Computed example of a mutant assay.
Amino acid sequence: MKPGQLCSQCKGKGMCGLPRCPVMERFHSSVRVKPSDSYMGGAPSVFVGAHGYPKVTGGPLLIGESDNPEIWVEKAYTIDDIVGVRSRTIRGNTAGASRGADAMQEIALSATPLDVEVAFTRPVAFDLRFDGTIAPVGLTGDMRKIDVLDNAKTPRPVDRAVSDTDLLAADAVWDLYRDGVGVHQVSQLLSAGLLGKQRKVVPTRWSITATDDMLGKACKTVVSRNSALDEYLVFAATLHGNTIVCILTPGDFRYEMIEHWQAGSMWGGHAGAIMTDGESRKGKKGYSPIAGAYYSARLAVLDYLRTAGRSARAIVIRSVAGSYWAPLGTWVIREAARQAMAQPPTTFEDLSGAKAFATAILGNSTWEHHSTLLTEIKTQKTLFDYFS
């Protein structure tokens, strides 16, 4: 296996054989919290681990500031800013995620961070874990006791969705999103076991991708009824070293994502690494090898098409530079794609112009050789072709 492919699959699991992952080392150097067996302060969200599922550990994330990625983007946090926040964040654990479940649910329900008082069984310790989907957390501690000192400020749409035990989880997620509840809180509610008919605590990394997937499917149902674009559009934006380029072409909805870790980037190794995946009008088969990034970018594209009242075939290229030195989670891809789709697009009359422009933004044509949808668009005619 090539070095770039190894890094892109390892993501800090130690497959390279080095004593400590260089990325973990930089997180470790950012820790500024003295070990303590107690905590009093803000609990902005909850975290449920996936290891050992269905017997999981979970609890609050403890930090005296917001951990909502949408706010990080709004405040223009740098990677170092975010790493600083996450390195100081404590993951409070309770075995089985049962003791302290009421506290977890109160925290997930609240639109604002709640103050809590926590007693740990021993001083908190550095225990960094990341997989590319979740935003990593630097510290962890097993909780002996937790007391919530505030009352949850629950938005009305959240109260309605949580109270309706006959509402399917997918419908609850869609209703919340349309009512203006952000993806971050929706995934928190799902993780804390507060949505759907058969409610259970869900690992956070699963709830993040499930939320993006369910919202994407709901958007796709709307988009499938829209009329097709009558031109070729290219959107682009860069966030934290992640450049997103989206090409929209006339036709019914198709989607393909190409993820390119540049040579020398975090998971790119010396030669770089590329992964691709896509879906037809009928939908996605199986879980994407690109993991959560696939669903996060798809949601942003479908949101644009839903709002614009159009359908299209979409090719999304994610190019990751060396400046993206810390795996911050799939929210980066979602927000980068949202920023791209929010920009006025560059318009072209044909595919060749759109393709050339996308290649110019990316700085190379590597993506073209890995695109199946590009070949399909070139060879298959649409009604637009017959009337142009």
Score class of each variant (00 low, 15 high):
S207I: 11
E256F: 14
T359I: 09
D213K: 06
T330V: 14
H270Y: 06
E70F: 12
D127E: 14
P22Y: 11
P344L: 09
A273E: 12
G92W: 06
T165A: 11
R144P: 00
A169F: 08
D67T: 14
E106C: 05
V316E: 00
I274N: 05
P157G: 03
T238V: 04
A170D: 13
P60K: 04
Q339W: 07
M24I: 10
G272A: 09
W267H: 14
G272F: 08
Y294I: 03
K55Y: 12
A43E: 13
D67Q: 08
P155I: 13
N151G: 08
W267G: 07
G283H: 10
V332W: 05
A312D: 03
C21R: 04
E259S: 07
A354S: 03
K378Y: 02
S98P: 00
M143Y: 11
T204S: 15
I79R: 02
S319D: 09
M341I: 05
H51K: 13
G216P: 03
I134N: 14
P123N: 01
A76T: 13
G59A: 12
G64L: 02
A192F: 01
M143W: 08
A237W: 05
S288K: 15
D80V: 04
A236V: 02
I274K: 07
S227Y: 13
I82N: 04
I315A: 01
